[in-house]
């Protein structure tokens, strides 16, 4: 994939950054308010119904959010570590290194993540000696599998980052007498990482959304618990519109999470951006 935003656009974006963020925030606030008004007035959904929140809030919602954050905290660092290492390793000239890794990447990119989650929870524990078995082991294995899954995508991102650094940079570094390691550390890596940040932001947003997949094997994340709640409480009490309020709230939480991550990484990108350096496809 090729980024269509060139350095010129980046420069003008730099200038308007504060204004732009403010405007976008204002627009979103207006949109949210409008949306709430529609819900309340037009559809007659009482969003802040205390019964609903009394039942849903304390356990299901809060525990759910914490659960999701917990899985995110496990999966993101792991997947970045895997993705970076594999991406780097795939630059090797040795086929004994690159071929197995390519198989790994192709596998995890070709299989839907939910399959990976389901079967990792079922088959995963067999790879672990019996004394470590616990009831949460399946979920843990599934989380690890999701890390490997995202790691495969991230390895492509990092690999593209490395390959986008012009070879002349390495030549120049070496011509100054730097070892390969030094060239990597001071010249190639700083540039490769900067290039990797935008697509990485996107991928991390996907990871956040993918944590909802763990619900299908019983994990206590936001999606899972909300699902449990809506099925129990709603179909019991016949307050069908509660369903929509709950799911809207859930959608909002995920949206805030993904938006925060992408905005954070976009900020990092703007702060450390190198003018004149652009990403090329892998």
């Amino acid at each position: 994939m090729v980024t269509t935003v060139g350095s010129a656009t980046r420069r003008s974006l730099d200038r308007g950054v504060t204004l732009r963020t403010l405007l976008r925030a204002a627009e979103m606030a207006i949109g949210a308010i409008l949306f709430i008004i529609i819900l309340e007035v037009v559809l007659r959904f009482d969003i802040l119904d205390s019964t609903l929140w009394g039942l849903y809030g304390p356990y299901y919602f809060v525990t759910g959010v914490l659960g999701t954050l917990q899985y995110i905290a496990i999966i993101i660092p792991l997947s970045v570590a895997v993705g970076f290492s594999v991406g780097w390793a795939r630059l090797s000239r040795l086929r004994v290194v690159t071929w197995p890794l390519s198989v790994y990447v192709d596998f995890f990119r070709g299989v839907p993540p939910i399959i990976i989650v389901i079967f990792a929870s079922l088959l995963g524990p067999s790879l672990v000696p019996a004394r470590f078995h616990s009831k949460d082991l399946g979920i843990l294995m599934a989380a690890l599998a999701l890390s490997l899954h995202s790691g495969a995508y991230q390895s492509e991102i990092f690999r593209a980052g490395f390959m986008s650094v012009p070879t002349g940079q390495l030549e120049a570094a070496q011509s100054l007498g730097m070892t390969r390691g030094q060239s990597m550390q001071f010249v190639v890596l700083p540039q490769a990482l900067r290039l990797s940040v935008p697509p990485l932001a996107n991928e991390l947003a996907v990871v956040i959304k993918d944590t909802s997949l763990l619900a299908i094997i019983g994990a206590l994340d936001l999606f899972g618990l909300s699902n449990v709640f809506t099925q129990q409480a709603v179909f019991g009490s016949n307050q069908l519109w509660w369903v929509f309020v709950v799911w809207t709230a859930v959608a909002l939480v995920y949206f805030v999470m993904t938006f925060s991550v992408t905005e954070l990484l976009n900020w990092v990108d703007r702060r450390y951006h190198v003018k004149g350096l652009e990403a090329i496809s892998a």
């Binding site: 002349g168 030549e171 120049a172 010249v187 190198v274």
Partner: peptide, 8 residues
């Protein structure tokens, strides 16, 4: 020929 200055 292409200078190869370290862009960062």
């Amino acid at each position: 020929q292409s200078f190869n200055l370290f862009t960062h």
